[in-house]
């Protein structure tokens, strides 16, 4: 118990890193999902093909491998670019935080692409026509009419994507991000109590995923409030 109290500080800051990376990659994943879904639904066949390749690749390759490619790949690319300008450059890498956040956002974004595409198709075309008739521009129709309508349909699946995004953050410890799995590794080396230390990590993740599930349930209820009277 005294070991846990001694390490509680590190676990707290580790959990903060997890939440930070979750927030950053969630925003990016939603953006990638919206871009991907728009590309898949567009009339341009090039955009269709690029979006299909994106979803096939990022849904078929293990998350860990994507993170490794981004981290080591970006390091080797940046180092060689650096050598062009400063030949004495030893080694440049991007922080594991950004490499990891970008990698898991691309992965979850590829799942969100499929979800958003289906949800966009579920929006009543009459509503879009009504927006056109009212003189809204394409951009306004997209952000004020189609996205809010689509969002309600996409929420249940998107909640699951958020849970996998949260769980994927654990993988970033492999490339050296100092989050809770990494803290547990350090704590184990000192206290020699691996089960206790890793179980704390599991319980922290469990409580965060529980909160996400509860928030998603409340959001679903909120987004369907206009149906309550009708039912």
């Amino acid at each position: 118990m005294s070991d846990l109290i001694a390490w509680s500080d590190d676990y707290f800051w580790g959990a903060m890193v997890v939440l930070k990376i979750f927030a950053v990659s969630l925003v990016m994943a939603v953006a990638f999902g919206l871009i991907g879904a728009t590309a898949k639904l567009s009339k341009s066949s090039i955009a269709n093909k690029i979006a299909s390749a994106y979803t096939i690749v990022f849904r078929g390759v293990p998350e860990l491998l994507v993170i490794l490619i981004f981290y080591y790949g970006s390091a080797i690319t940046l180092t060689s670019i650096g050598r062009v300008f400063y030949p004495q450059t030893q080694f440049i890498d991007i922080a594991p935080f950004w490499a990891g956040a970008f990698a898991i956002a691309l992965i979850v974004g590829s799942y969100a692409t499929e979800t958003f595409r289906g949800a966009f198709l579920g929006v009543d075309p009459g509503i879009v026509e009504a927006a056109r008739a009212l003189g809204l521009s394409n951009l306004h129709t997209f952000f004020y009419v189609r996205v809010p309508q689509m969002w309600r349909l996409a929420l249940p699946s998107f909640g699951n994507h958020m849970l996998s995004l949260m769980k994927d953050t654990a993988l970033i410890s492999i490339i050296g991000l100092e989050e809770i799995v990494y803290v547990a590794e350090m704590a184990t080396a000192v206290t020699l109590k691996p089960f206790t230390m890793y179980m704390i990590v599991a319980l922290i993740y469990l409580s965060i995923t529980t909160v996400i599930t509860l928030v998603m349930m409340a959001l679903e209820k909120h987004s369907n409030r206009h149906l309550e009277g009708a039912l």
Partner: peptide, 19 residues
């Protein structure tokens, strides 16, 4: 379903020999 597989693997591989 609420915890990452990586953490489950670590709890079993690194953790269980504690006992």
């Amino acid at each position: 379903r609420g915890t990452p597989i990586l953490v489950q693997i670590f709890v079993i591989y690194h953790g269980l020999p504690q006992f």
